[in-house]
């Protein structure tokens, strides 16, 4: 692919370097009046959702609150009924998913979707081969494998990995795109306590060392408390609360929608 380095222009790198120093705290992602209707059901209703560069945000809410829909609207897998999405100051609402990815967005799906028939190494190679060649590619692949803890399993088929390892592999693939913002949809669902800790460590490490901003959808409140700076509560397609983990935990209204708020579809 000749356009391998598209979306990697020096200006962008400059910005993320600035961000890493903590001097500049520009908004990296902003949705403006974002609305998505599926027929009669309004899954996302006039949401203004903003994420600061380098931030680690958790997105929580009862089932059917519209969390995954919001993520899909941000990546472009769905197109909104109304409203706009801005990323790094540019409107990306009309762009195809791959164009958004090239601007520095990345996602890990809810269901692990690694390429099961390819080896772990081939999986890791796919995102990296677009961005780098030659020895740089080899180095980045080795780094990604090591960071995912899968260096010794590089040559087995991805289908042979455990659920937790697949989650790690997919986070590794998403991170190897050098994103400025990484969206994770339920990264620890169905994992053991140990595996959860590994994933939590991985996320904070990527966030701190590479200053990647995160939006993490998660149900597990302990996990959320572990990693999040800031929490957004989505309820019935609307932004319900935003605040620090303490504020959210103390909020009786949030307690109420979690305990009695299962009425929405």
């Amino acid at each position: 692919m000749s356009d391998a380095t598209e979306g990697m222009d020096p200006a962008v790198k400059q910005t993320s370097a600035e961000l890493a120093t903590g001097v500049d705290t520009d908004t990296i992602l902003q949705t403006d009046g974002l609305t998505k209707r599926f027929g009669g059901l309004t899954a996302i209703d006039d949401v203004d959702f903003g994420v600061e560069a380098g931030e680690l945000r958790c997105l929580i809410g009862p089932n059917g609150a519209g969390k995954s829909t919001l993520l899909n609207l941000i990546t472009g897998a769905l197109s909104p009924s109304e409203g706009a999405v801005y990323f790094k100051g540019h409107e990306i609402t009309g762009l195809d998913p791959h164009e958004r990815i090239r601007h520095g967005l990345s996602i890990k799906f809810q269901v692990p979707s690694v390429y099961e028939d390819l080896t772990v190494r081939e999986n890791v190679r796919l995102p990296i081969q677009r961005l780098a060649s030659g020895t740089e590619r080899d180095e980045r692949m080795a780094d990604a494998l090591a960071a995912s803890g899968l260096a010794d399993k590089a040559d087995i088929e991805a289908s042979a990995l455990s659920h937790g390892e697949q989650q790690q592999l997919e986070i590794g693939m998403a991170a190897s795109l050098d994103p400025d913002l990484l969206l994770l949809d339920e990264p620890v669902a169905g994992l053991s306590v140990d595996e959860r800790e590994e994933i939590a460590d991985r996320i904070t490490q990527l966030n701190e060392e590479r200053s990647i901003a995160f939006v993490v959808i998660e149900h597990d409140t302990d996990f959320v408390a572990d990693i999040a700076d800031h929490i957004t509560v989505l309820h019935q397609g609307e932004t319900f609360r935003e605040g620090s983990i303490e504020e959210i935990e103390a909020d009786p209204e949030v307690q109420r929608i979690y305990l009695g708020g299962e009425t929405d579809a």
């Binding site: 996602i107 690694v114 390429y115």
Partner: peptide, 15 residues
């Protein structure tokens, strides 16, 4: 990769 999973491939930045 396109054969195996189109959505995944799109989300790795491929057209």
């Amino acid at each position: 990769a396109v054969r195996e999973d189109e959505d995944r491939t799109e989300m790795l930045g491929y057209d």
